[in-house]
Amino acid sequence: MRSLVIGASGGIGAALLAAAAGQGEAVGLSRSADGLDLTDEASVARLLGGLEGPFDRVIVATGALHGGQGPEKTLRALESPAMAAQFALNAIGPALVLKHALRFMPRDRPARFAALSARVGSIGDNGLGGWYSYRAAKAALNQLVHTAAIEIARSHPQSVVVCLHPGTVATRFTADYPDRSKLSPEKAATGLLSVLDGLGPEDSGGFFDVQGKRVPW
């Protein structure tokens, strides 16, 4: 089992890399260690172009809740640059990784790609409002992955291409958001890998939480 983890220096990413390494060979890329910039396709192409496949799993564990300001609570707080930055990192970036990582995914056996999304990106589950940019960027990611799964199934019939919701994980990104039910990065990583490995081609294009339950779009 060979795994590639994008965002391997973050709280969840590092835990995913360690868990995957315990099951086989694992390669990690990150901004801090490798200079990977998901908002720059040239950076994505260069760093992924330096790797040799195939990989049985490709997992994108990047993302940010906000870029220097708190999530918007009202329409009055919307700012075009902040919204664009959210889309660049949380939606476009993972899609570019999938574009350039597709060549790593074997066609003759199961191949799995997962991007970490978030339940707040679910339109059907949104009963509170707020968090405009982050919600919209994650919803866009869900659509991009779902659409790509349809295309990839034609050339990779055993593929699983999904979005995963890790839950609220105790990392520095969630330090300002109290939640007694926060998972440790290690527990989240173990759960995410178990869910991903348990999915089949019939699940490709779906959105699942860390317990393997479908999240509504």
Rank of each mutant, 00 (worst) to 15 (best):
N142M: 07
R109E: 11
Q143H: 13
V97H: 03
R154D: 13
L17P: 07
A118P: 02
A88N: 05
G121T: 06
H156A: 08
L102M: 04
M105T: 07
R2Q: 12
L141G: 12
G124T: 08
P178E: 05
D176M: 02
C163I: 10
F207E: 01
D40N: 09
E151V: 15
A26R: 14
A153K: 13
H165A: 13
V210I: 14
L78W: 11
G10W: 03
L199A: 07
I92Y: 05
R103Q: 09
S194L: 04
R57W: 01
G10Y: 00
G53L: 10
G50M: 04
V44D: 11
A61W: 02
R31H: 14
P166W: 02
T39R: 11
A33W: 05
S9N: 05
V120A: 09
A84C: 04
L183K: 14
G10A: 02
V44L: 00
I123K: 07
F207P: 01
L65R: 03
D197I: 11
V27T: 13
L199D: 06
L96C: 04
A8Y: 09
R76D: 11
H100R: 03
G121K: 04
A33K: 05
D56T: 02
A85H: 01
T147D: 00
M105W: 09
P94G: 02
F104V: 00
L36S: 00
L38E: 05
R2G: 10
L193T: 01
S194N: 09
A82D: 04
V215D: 01
G124D: 12
L16Y: 07
F104T: 02
V160E: 01
S181M: 04
A101C: 05
Q211N: 14
G121H: 01
I150G: 13
S155Y: 11
L51A: 09
R112Y: 01
A111I: 11
T174V: 10
F104A: 02
G7H: 13
V169L: 11
G121D: 06
A111N: 06
G13P: 05
D34L: 03
S181W: 01
R46P: 12
L196Y: 04
E79N: 03
A149R: 08
D108M: 00
A118F: 00
L75N: 09
S184M: 10
R180T: 04
D40F: 02
G50P: 09
I59Y: 01
A91L: 05
I6S: 04
A118R: 02
A20Q: 11
F113N: 02
G28M: 07
V145I: 15
K182H: 08
G130T: 13
R112P: 05
G7A: 12
V215T: 02
Q86F: 01
A175I: 09
A82K: 08
G129Y: 14
M1K: 06
A139D: 13
S133G: 15
S181L: 08
G13N: 07
P166C: 08
R180S: 10
S155Q: 15
R214P: 15
A14R: 10
N126C: 12
L17H: 12
F87E: 07
L192A: 08
G206Q: 00
G130Y: 06
I6V: 15
L98M: 10
A14V: 03
T168A: 12
G191A: 00
